[in-house]
Amino acid sequence: MGTHSGHGRLGAGVTAGVAGLALAAWLSGRRAARGTASTEPVRAARACHRSSALLAGSVLADSAMEHERGAYANPAMYVPPLMAALVLLAGAHGGGDARPQRHRVRHAVYGGAMATGVAGTGFHLYNILKRPGRWSWHNLFHAAPLGAPMALLLAGGLGLAAERVRHGRTRVPRLLGRPAGQALGLLVGAGLLGTTGEAALLHFRGAFQHRAMVLPVSLPPLAAAALLHAAVAPPTRRPLARWLLRLVRLLGWLGMAFHTRGIARRQGGWRNWSQNLFAGPPLPAPPSFSALAVAGLAALRLREKRA
């Protein structure tokens, strides 16, 4: 059976995704609301909300497009874009929320996103394993991407972390039984490494045909290593880690610019958007690095404040 979609829906899906990403980008760049003197845990929490929102924006755009491409053949395919949109809203709300209390609805949304991420990973794994070739390079390249649902898992995780951090009853907020800065640093470091893995896979698929394609597989692991070290080593100032994370934050947007150009370079360029947005380099993917870097910087600040 054919898809029910036409260009209308295709266009709407793409527009929604891109709008979500734009909103998330705007949020991530927003400073804390004026006039409220936030404590460091709240500041860190709000950074985490923004990070989560940006990651969710990336997931929203990506999953809306890719599941459109898959014709929403399984109704469950509507869930990730929906959850990503909710996480985006939760992040928008949380990013502007200076109260040191957790928010129940946001909390539930983040939990839901994590559950969706876990389920999605299962679905995508099933998709890979049912195709001829099973667990093979080819299916890792072209079947449902394993890294994509993990990004939603990560967005939910960052959101939950934000709720926990701002809700600290003690002076030093704690997360998963550890000082919050340390736990968050470990989470973000792992997230950076995972995202690097996805970029490596896809850039390998693209044969590293452009020199810049090595950047997202070389810089983020360095930043992750510095962040992980900062998380486990005795708390002190970490200028190298901070600069690396700032570079990674920049790299995400740079990557998006490169991908924009990559689409333009393909046959038909942007005029042929209905093909090239799908077949070209994924526009919403690189900003997930920026998102993680935002959270990483927050973790670093917490850690430097001995949290």
């Binding site: 001829p132 693209g206 045909q209 370079r265 393909r266 046959q267 093909q275």
Partner: peptide, 28 residues
């Protein structure tokens, strides 16, 4: 092929799966 227990593979093809200089990748 899998049903009959023999191996198969994506065919090595002389058409670009990624850009190369001024040449566009395959649009299928």
């Amino acid at each position: 092929a899998e049903a009959l227990g023999i191996r198969w593979t994506p065919t090595p093809l002389a058409t670009l799966s990624a850009p190369r200089g001024p040449a566009h990748p395959c649009v299928y």
